[in-house]
Nucleic acid binder design. Sequence first.
DNA 1: TGCAAGTTCTTTTAGTGTAATCATAGTGGA
DNA 2: TCCACTATGATTACACTAAAAGAACTTGCA
Lengths: 330, 330
Amino acid sequence: MITLKELAKQLNVSVSTVSKALHDAKDIGPDTKKRIKEAAELYNYKPNRTALALKANKTQTIGVIIPDVLNQFFAKVLHGIEEYATTHNYDTIVCVSHDQMGKEAKSVDLLTQGRVDGFIISLALETLLNQEFSHIESIQKNKKKLVLFDRTTEKVNCDKVIINDEKSIFDATKVLIDSGNRKIAFVSNIEDLGIGQMRKEGYRNALKANNIEVNNQLEVDLTNKENPHEIIINFLKANKIDAVISADNTSGLMFQSIVNKEMPKVSSKITIIGFSDEKTAQLSYPPMGYIDQNAMKIGEKSAELLINKLESKTKTDIRFEMPFNINIRS
Amino acid sequence: MITLKELAKQLNVSVSTVSKALHDAKDIGPDTKKRIKEAAELYNYKPNRTALALKANKTQTIGVIIPDVLNQFFAKVLHGIEEYATTHNYDTIVCVSHDQMGKEAKSVDLLTQGRVDGFIISLALETLLNQEFSHIESIQKNKKKLVLFDRTTEKVNCDKVIINDEKSIFDATKVLIDSGNRKIAFVSNIEDLGIGQMRKEGYRNALKANNIEVNNQLEVDLTNKENPHEIIINFLKANKIDAVISADNTSGLMFQSIVNKEMPKVSSKITIIGFSDEKTAQLSYPPMGYIDQNAMKIGEKSAELLINKLESKTKTDIRFEMPFNINIRS
DNA sequence: TGCAAGTTCTTTTAGTGTAATCATAGTGGA
DNA sequence: TCCACTATGATTACACTAAAAGAACTTGCA
C-alpha cells in the first residue's frame, strides 16, 4: 500500500512526475519513465481507489438492492450483475431490503452519499404496496443512475429490465393444452406478490383462449400455509388432473414428490411446469418442465444498461423485455 | 448531494465552522450551531463517505469473496454477513471466485487498494488444490483484516469460522443407526471437494463405530454425472436400503423423489438426511431430515469477528466452530 | 557570438470533501 | 492595559490527477 508520495520520495522526484510517468505522459523522459515504472512494479504500487473516487467523483461501484438473496431468482440476477460489473471494472455493493420499504430507503440513503455511481433495484413488496417511491426518486435527484428490474413501477422513469410474467405462464399453459392436457392445476406460493397475480392471469387467460373453463377448484394456494403437503394431498384426492403449472420456483418440486408418492402409477403422465432452471428441474423425478426466465441475463442486462448510462453511451431510457424459454421433458 | 463548502457559502460562514457545528463542537455559538444544523437538515446534508474514507483511511466496507452465490449455503452465509454488517454500519462488496484462484486473487488485488477494510473469504477450490495462498497472505501484508470460513486452511493465520463436517455426518449417521437402520446409503455430488471427503469419512466412521461393515456399494457418487437419475434408479434396484445420508444439499431431494416413484410402498420408511434447512426439506415428501449448518449464523459470526478486529475489540485470532443441528421427521 | 525561440523534462499549483489542529479577532473582566 | 475566553476562520493532510508554470537545454538565425 505504497503511495505516490512515498514512491516519489524514494526516487527523488516530485509526486506529479511519478503520476505522469505511470500514465505514460509524453513529457516525461524515457529513462525517468522506465526508472519510475520499475520502482512502481517493485513496490507493487496501485493507485488508491478511494482517492481516485474522490477526485473523479466516480466510485466505479454499483449499488444493488434486492428483496432477498436466498431466493434463487434474485441470487441468479445478482450473479449476472456481479459478473458483468466485474468484467467492466465495477464493484458491486449488495443490500437486502427484506421486502421492507424502510430498509430499502435506508440503503438508498446510505449508498447515495458518495458511495456508488448508480443503482440496480428490484423493489420491495412494501414499496409496491404503498406506491411510495420518493426514496427511489431521490436517487435521480442526486444525479445517480438507476435501473429497475422485475419488480418495477411505471411511476418512475428509468431504464428497466422486465419480464412478461403473464405471457410466460400463458405460453407454458398453452404448451400443456396443445399436448392434450385439459385439467390443468395451478399451484402458487406467491399469491401475495403482484407477479403472482399476473402469473395466475396468464394461466387463466390461456385456458379461456382455448375454451377451457376456468375452475378455481384447480387453483391451489400454498402462500404462507403451514401444511402445504396436506393441502396438496387433499387436492389430489379431490381432483383428477392432467398437468400442473407452478407460479413459483419451488412448489412444483414439492408437488412432484407428492404425486410420485400418492399416485406412482400415473405420476409420469402428469406434466409439471414451474419457474426454475435446468439444475433445479433435475431435482425432481421425472424432471419437471420449467420456464427459464434467464435470470442471469437479466442481471447482465441490468448491469449493461446501468454502465452504459454511467459512461454516457446511452441517453434515453430503455425498457428491455427479457425473453424466456419453456423447456419440458419430451 | 450538497457539500460542506456549499453549505458554508449559503450560510456565510467558513467550512470549518459548519463542520464543527455539525459535530457539536463546544466552541461554536449555540445560535450559529442551530442555524447550521437547520440548514443541513433542510438541504439534507450528509458527509461524503468517499471523502471520509480517504481522510480516515477506513472505508467502512467489507469485501466478501465466495466461490458461488447460487449455492444456497453461500447465499445464506452472505445473507448473514450482509445483515450483521449493515446493522453495524458497514457495506458489503461481493465478489464471486467461481472456484478459480485467478479470479479470487484478482478480487483480492482490486479490493485491497483502498477499497475495503477487511475480507471474509471462503477459499476457491483451485486455491485449496494448489495450496497456493500468497494472494491471501498479501491481504495481511497490506494490513487488512481477514476472516476465513468453511473452506479454510491451516497455512494462513487469521480468524476462522469452521464447520465440523466429519462430526456432523457422523452424528447424523449415528441417529439413523440408533433408530435401527443398518443399510445406510451415502449419496454425494461433492466428492471433488475436501469437505465432501470429510463428510464421507464421517459416514464411514459412524458405521465402524457401530460395528457395521463399510460397503462402498452403498456409496453413490453423483459428482458431475450426466445421468444422476439413472444411477440412483439402478442403485435402488440393486440394493435394498433402510436410509440415506446425503453429503450435499440437493441430492437428497432427488433421491426422495425417485424413491417415491420407484418404491412408493416403502418410501415412507426410508429416512433421508441431507444438508439443508427447514424450508428446503419441506420440498420433499415426506419431508427430509436435515443437518442444519446454521449458515446464516456462520455469516453473522464471520462479520462479527472481522468487525471486532477492525474496531480493535479483539487482538488474538479466534477459531470458532459453528455448532450444527440435526432435524429428522419424527 | 549572442540571443530568441523552441524542446524536453520536472515541479508547482489547484482541486476533490472532510475533520483536526492551529490561528486570530473580538469581548469582557480584572 | 492585558489576559483569558469565546467564537470563528485558515490551514493542513488524506492520495491522487491535470493543468500550468518553470527550468534547463538545444537549435537557428542575424
